[in-house]
Design a protein around this nucleic acid. Structure first.
Lengths: 166, 166
DNA sequence: ACAGATAGTTTGTGTAGCGCCAACCATTTA
DNA sequence: TAAATGGTTGGCGCTACACAAACTATCTGT
């Protein structure tokens, strides 16, 4: 549904402000700031933001096939391979062949991986403090909750193995 | 330095409880999904997510020097030049020399730019619907508000080149 | 008025992420 | 047995970005 609030958007200075949900640019903006800071914080741990995302997904889903992971992360399968290679080389993740279908790899966090993820998240706290500094603790809590719920469907959908067609 | 659980070492093993600050990965994740969708929606308008961010900042700050813009966007000055070249070539933005300091360019949205930004945001609504679909409208409102406040300080701060009425 | 700093621009270099294609293996399914 | 599927590898090409160097125009301080 495309609603034009009216084609009159003009007036440079004091208009409309139909700021209902214009989250796109803001989200991008915030995420960028967060990433810039995260990178430096994460570097000593040998991780990059992507890795964190992948690890988080894996923790929350409790393991998934690479294909499903590629789906959740919305990135190309071939690149997922590289990502997992990194993580596995670091011992943070494990690929096991699925007993049901031995073509598949079931990817799971290792204990070390979970621990490292935890550390990383702690280390990240300062970055978040900086980026989300304008929010009060309570608000940040809400923010986190909303983030999680927004991301949730894809992430929490742990079954991850159901898929055909496509 | 290796991060150790040290002083906040309560709960070394419980995976679920420290759900306070976990926004980093989620933010990144959501932003990525949003960007993927935004790109396709924005393409027909000849814009990319970065442009959107820049335009948004410019609108919200009501104009700023390139240097200030580089600061807000946290990107290198030389790359801002290219970004603005695009935008100016498309007539969405205008560089005027500052009367106070003629070395400076004051960058401002043009009327066309404001209009285009508006259109882009409308076009983006569907992308947002998709990505934030799990949130109820009211929640989305809150989410947007939080985003805005979190981003706010940096954006609103811009050294206020007083200037209205383009 | 001159030197040095500053805003912006241009060009060029290097790095990294990522989508995509193609070839290939192991395995499953028809 | 043939075809489809999950994963892997390698390669191509594009884009974003930081960074550096050189240049112009302009400001500022002594």
């Amino acid at each position: 549904m495309v609603y034009r609030a009216g084609k009159l958007g003009h007036m440079p200075a004091a208009p409309v402000d139909q700021s209902e949900r214009r989250s796109g640019a803001l989200l991008e903006y915030l995420a960028r700031r967060m990433r810039l800071r995260s990178e430096s914080v994460l570097a000593p741990l040998g991780l990059r933001p992507r890795h964190l995302v992948a690890l988080t997904v894996l923790r929350d889903s409790g393991g998934s096939s690479q294909q499903a992971l590629a789906g959740t992360l919305e990135m190309d399968g071939t690149n997922v391979v590289g990502l997992l290679n990194d993580l596995e080389a670091a011992g943070l993740v494990e690929r096991r062949r699925s007993p049901q279908d031995r073509r598949r790899h079931v990817v799971e966090l290792t204990t070390v991986g979970a621990k490292r993820l935890n550390e990383a998240e702690c280390a990240l706290a300062s970055a978040e403090d900086e980026v989300l500094g304008a929010l009060a603790p309570g608000e940040r809590e809400i923010f986190y909750d909303l983030l999680r719920r927004a991301a949730g469907p894809a992430v929490t959908c742990a079954d991850a193995y159901v898929d055909e067609e496509r």
